[in-house]
Amino acid sequence: MDVVLIAVAAVYGALAGVLTRRARFRLAVEPGEGWRSTAPCGHAAGGWVGAARCGVCGERYGPGAPAPPWWPAVMTAVVCGGLAAAVGIRPELAVWLLAVPLGVVLAGVDRQVHRLPDVLTLPLAAGVALLLGAASLIPGAAGSWPHALLGGLALGGGYLVLFLLHPSGMGFGDVKLAAGLGCALGWYGWWPLLQGALAGLLLASCYGNVLRITRRVPRGASIPLGPFLIAGAWAGVLAGALRAKG
């Protein structure tokens, strides 16, 4: 059963990796600009879910174009398959799998334009909190909803303090993202919350140092934190789920 569950989750992840490309293209704009509604070919780019391919001329657009969208599909398949392997058949798995596409889009947009749109960070935080509340009512859930809410407050509050102390080092979007990720990590307790938070900061620090050592970015330049916060949260959720399974 575990093998079937992992396979189904991986297939779902692969499809999500492809179908989120249009949203990533439309949302990856500079602050103050409206969401993209036109493809580079000049035809309309409507809708939010789907491959980044023009429905009129067939031209690919968006992240990585004109290369085929296999890389995001592989990555999201690994993410979802790993969650299924760690969590097993538990109610919270559905919450994690629903959150993955939003995380993929947020990571991609932040990597491109250093921006975490409210249209995704706020629904992610609210959705994770509410869905975990529903999951906690189903027999077999391995976490705690009150801990999840406290985790969101703790991580979001921690990042708010960091933002106020050093606003040039991160954006307010990171604070709102941290609230949603904190809910997910707090579900399994304080230790996974700490692991996930530290893992995200460590990954971001290592990445930034490598870029500065290789002089790909000037010293003092900011880097997008979103992808690393999301990767750290994934690692923390995996650790918490494996610990819950015993």
Rank of each mutant, 00 (worst) to 15 (best):
V3Q: 10
V4K: 01
L5N: 11
V8Y: 03
A16S: 15
A16E: 11
R21N: 10
A23E: 11
R24M: 13
F25Y: 09
A28C: 10
R36K: 09
T38P: 04
H43K: 11
H43A: 08
A44G: 14
A45D: 05
A52Y: 02
C54W: 12
G58H: 08
E59V: 15
R60A: 15
G62Q: 04
P63S: 08
P63F: 04
G64Y: 00
P69I: 12
P72L: 14
P72Q: 12
A73N: 03
V74H: 00
M75W: 10
T76Y: 02
G82M: 01
I89A: 13
I89F: 12
R90P: 05
L93F: 11
A94Y: 05
V95F: 06
L98F: 13
V100K: 01
L102F: 15
L106H: 06
L106Q: 04
G108I: 04
V109D: 00
R111A: 08
R111E: 09
Q112C: 07
Q112G: 08
H114G: 08
L116H: 05
P117M: 08
D118G: 11
L122Q: 06
P123A: 15
V128S: 07
L131G: 03
G133E: 14
G133M: 15
A134Y: 09
S136V: 12
S136P: 10
I138K: 06
I138D: 08
P139Q: 05
A141K: 06
G143R: 02
W145I: 07
P146C: 01
A148I: 10
G151V: 03
A154Y: 01
L155T: 06
Y159V: 14
Y159A: 02
L160D: 00
V161Y: 04
L162H: 01
L162Y: 01
H166D: 15
P167G: 09
S168I: 04
S168F: 04
G169P: 02
M170Y: 02
G173T: 12
V175I: 06
A178H: 00
A178Y: 00
C183R: 00
A184F: 03
A184W: 02
G186S: 13
G186T: 00
Q195H: 10
G196E: 00
G200C: 04
L202M: 08
L203E: 05
S205D: 04
C206T: 13
V210Q: 07
V210P: 06
L211N: 03
R212E: 08
R212D: 00
R212Y: 05
T214Q: 14
T214V: 14
R216D: 04
P218L: 15
R219N: 14
G220H: 13
S222N: 10
P224W: 09
F228K: 04
G232E: 09
L238C: 10
A241C: 14
A241L: 10
L242S: 09
R243W: 13
K245D: 11
G246A: 15
